[in-house]
């Protein structure tokens, strides 16, 4: 079942006293990923390569690398492995873009997480109906 849903984007910025090359390792190497994101990781850093992170006490992020422009730009798909197709944030349903821009001795990291399911403010109830109607299967419509 296809879902066209209302979505939102999360943006985070962080300035890190490390080179873009060092940060690139932390997004693409399993042992480096396990130092900050989870307890273990699988990472095949090539387009279409698996990207899987077991977070500390439960959730498993499952995605794949989509675009790699070392050491400045990385795009990967992001989903929760436990969520079946059709559920919120199932694998393949959201995307994360990382840009690493050198700035003196530091690197500015910009993270954009796109396609997060969301609703509009109550006066834009459109979002709800859009989300729900697009999820309806023929069986439900016949009810």
């Amino acid at each position: 079942m296809t879902q066209a849903i209302e979505t939102t984007t999360i943006e985070q910025y962080v300035r890190i006293a490390a080179s873009a090359e060092t940060l690139w390792e932390f997004w693409t190497q399993p042992d480096r990923l396990a130092e900050w994101w989870g307890t273990s990781a699988e990472a095949v850093a090539e387009p279409g390569g698996i990207f899987r992170v077991v977070m500390d006490s439960g959730p498993i992020m499952r995605g794949e690398y989509l675009e790699l422009d070392a050491p400045n730009r990385l795009v990967f798909s992001f989903g929760w492995e436990s969520n079946a197709s059709g559920e919120l944030m199932a694998p393949g349903t959201t995307r994360v873009e990382i840009t690493l821009t050198p700035d003196g001795d530091e690197t500015l990291l910009v993270l954009r997480h796109l396609d997060i399911p969301a609703t509009h403010a109550p006066d834009h109830a459109q979002g709800w109906s859009h989300f729900i109607i697009d999820c309806l299967s023929p069986a439900a419509s016949a009810a």
């Binding site: 985070q12 080179s19 932390f26 130092e35 900050w36």
Partner: peptide
């Protein structure tokens, strides 16, 4: 999740550097 994890990334990467 990102706020928590980016703080951890910053610590880890700066330590590695």
């Amino acid at each position: 999740m990102w706020i928590d994890n980016l703080a951890r990334l910053k610590d880890a990467a700066e330590g590695a550097e």
